[in-house]
Design a protein around this nucleic acid. Sequence first.
DNA 1: ATTGATGCAAATGATTTGCACCGTG
DNA 2: CACGGTGCAAATCATTTGCATCAAT
Lengths: 135, 135
Amino acid sequence: MNELASILKTHNLKVTPQRLAIYSILLNTKEHPSAEAIYQSLSLDHPNISLATVYKTLDTFKINNLVQELNVGEGNFRYDANILDHTHAFCNSCRKVIDIDESISPEITKQLCNDSGFKVTSSKVYLFGTCKDCQ
Amino acid sequence: MNELASILKTHNLKVTPQRLAIYSILLNTKEHPSAEAIYQSLSLDHPNISLATVYKTLDTFKINNLVQELNVGEGNFRYDANILDHTHAFCNSCRKVIDIDESISPEITKQLCNDSGFKVTSSKVYLFGTCKDCQ
DNA sequence: ATTGATGCAAATGATTTGCACCGTG
DNA sequence: CACGGTGCAAATCATTTGCATCAAT
């Protein structure tokens, strides 16, 4: 059996072609796609999938901590199969979201935690500016 | 003339009672209200203001860098008249957004900037967890 | 066979837009 | 007076929901 299927089973989720397809897209892209963008990607190999299913599946994945939801202020959400806290940089020019793999965010959360009495379970760090290609 | 009025003028914005009211609300709250919440607050003293005007005004303020827009994943935006980069903590229990006044976020953005070739102009840091009152 | 997943279409909720009218500079 | 701002209602966009059907265990 395929590896994705066993990950889904680990979370007590039924294995369906739709779920495999959506999870596979997220694992194989660096684009941080929106629900709509995922739906577009699916139109090739799974033309009869429903947008509602994409939303429901993403919600299920989010609840089961298989994906994280991002919001860089565009008016919709984006999804990332990398669930570890890491920094996302949004280019105001090309509107791409880039992963910044630095382990600084987790560190600062701990520091902030100490001072404020707020018990931190996760964090999101967004940088805004211009990416290398657009400069 | 009142101080808020002169701030608006500095940005070449016409001074209207609606803008003064909205900006005043944002300057005097720690609640990080949504457009809808601001509209509710206005219903007392400005009962005939339009929700569309609230949205248009917030957009104008955002463009003129008088407010910043937050998104903690609730499906709407919240607004903060403190435009300096600072950390926001969202309590998953009471759904309040709390300011964390630490100057760490600006520091990390500089570090990340160096490594990635991404030119950072601003940043947003969100912490998720449980606030002091809810623990 | 049971239970949960899917697809469709309709509903919702947040935000935006068009346009006539009004108020500020 | 001119131009931008406001209010209203309608439109749009992202996301959710209800429900009948379908598929995985």
